[in-house]
Structure formats: structure tokens, C-alpha cells
Design a protein around this nucleic acid. Sequence first.
DNA 1: TGCCAGGCCTTCC
DNA 2: GGAAGGCATGGC
Length: 281
Amino acid sequence: MKELEIDTKCFNLKYTLECGQCFRWKKVEDYYIGVIKDRVVKLKQVENKLYVSSNREEDLEQEIRKYLDLDKDYEVIENRIIDVDEYVKKALKNTSGLRHLNQDFFETIISYIISANNNIPRISKSVNEISKRYGTQVEFENEKYYLFPTPKQLKDVTIEQYRECGVGFRDKYIYDTVKKINSNEVNLEDIQNMDTKELRSLLLTLMGIGPKVADCILLFSCGRQEVFPVDVWVERVMKKLYFNDENVSKKKILEYADKNFGSDAGIIQQHLFYNIRENLI
DNA sequence: TGCCAGGCCTTCC
DNA sequence: GGAAGGCATGGC
């Protein structure tokens, strides 16, 4: 198929895909290859041009724009947050163009349940293994890829089988969550219409989802950029920058973010997270 | 060998 | 309602 060409501004593919918000992209030479919902996608950025190819052409540009959040004006957002303080300014200069993805809701729920007390390479490995075992196989450029399974495809998977995918003690959480979704005990429809607070409390009723995981799901698959997930890295960077390396509670950190970062807290969070992990700040 | 990883659940006060 | 302990697994 022919390659699609999309003009972008204030967009950096590398930062967006490598900042730790997603787990299924693989870098091959100067391309990134991954699965978005029901298709395999190959992406490459050269300056402000994004080149896209896929095994499916139908609605491709629309899906890519949605997934990469290309229709939101990040120039406006970045111009707004650059004056928050000197640390945010520095972080933003290092990683300008980092965007929040709109990932599949169900996939993000399961991926972030796996993320608890885990590390990124191992999370990726588990998510890929679940896809390989239970997702639909598709082909692209003579290679096999696997879509992330739907709740129905996971209907009969046992706790032991999840364990075999390397998820460790989180096996029962995934099992329970999938069961609740399949039995409609928790209805994931109409999430777009729910306000953040309501959606958050719904997520918190699921096994394996606590405050941090819920906020990651809201930020990386529901476009709620006001939430501020605090993990060990964010705790570390916040203490370093704003609390003189003192041992403050997570509650204090959240209060600081809410007061000083406001409705852009999630955007700032991701820049700080990436900067501290890459040792840039 | 021991510690850590995008924390959460359970138990106990 | 808050604190402490346990938890699978692999990399360093």
C-alpha cells in the first residue's frame, strides 16, 4: 500500500512513544511498528512530516490522528505551561512535542493493572504475551502481529493462564476485572460522557486498580489531562524539585500539583516523568 | 545476594 | 483512616 503523509506541528514521535505511556511499540531502524486497535501500523517522523503505513487503509489517517492526539493544539498547551516555573520550562524544552495518546480503553486497563510494582520491559513482555496467546493474528509485510484481545476473547482464560504470561501476583486482578467487564457488572460504555470524578470511581471498583493506576488510565486512554499519577519516579522528581528532597507524603505532592499545575497537571507530569527517567532534569 | 520496578490488597490498629 | 507487610518475577 502507499504511505500516508501527515503534516504535524509541536509533535515528537520518539518522545510520545518512548515516554512510558504505551507498551507495544517496537523500534525497527528508523520506524516504530505497533498495533493500534485492529491494525498494524508503521510510523516514521522526518522533521514535521509523519509517514504512516498499515495493513488496513480504511480510516487510517483518522485513527492515527486520534491515537496520537494530533487534532489538539499542543502549541497552545505548551505556551501555557512554560511559565509555570523554571523546572517545568526546562523539562518542556527537553521534551517538547510529547503528546498523550488516546489508547484503547480495555487494553490500557489491563496494561496498567500489570504495571503495578513492575518495570516497563516486563510490562511490555506480559502485554505482548497476552496478545500473542489470546488476540487475533494479523499479517503485515510478511510478519505476524497480534491485536490486543477483546474482553470476550479473554472470557475463558484462567488465573493460571494469566500467570503463564508472566504477570505474577496480578493474575487474579486481571481475571477478576475481565470477569466484571464481561458480566456487565461494570459497564465501560459511554465513558466519554462521564466526568473525570465519576469515571475514576468506576475504575477504582475494579481489582488491581488503585489511585495511581486509575489516573494513568484516565490520562493515557481517556484524554483527562488534569489528573496527576504519582508513581515512584514522579514522587522522586517532585521531592527533588519542590520539596528539597524531604520525605513528604503522596497527599502533599498531589496538593502541590493541583494548586500549581491545575488543569494541565497530567501534561506536566509526563514531561517530568520522562525527564527524570532519562536523567535530563 | 539483596534491591528495585509507572502499587494494590489485606490485615491490623 | 492510616500504617505495615506481602506479593511474582527478572534485571542489575
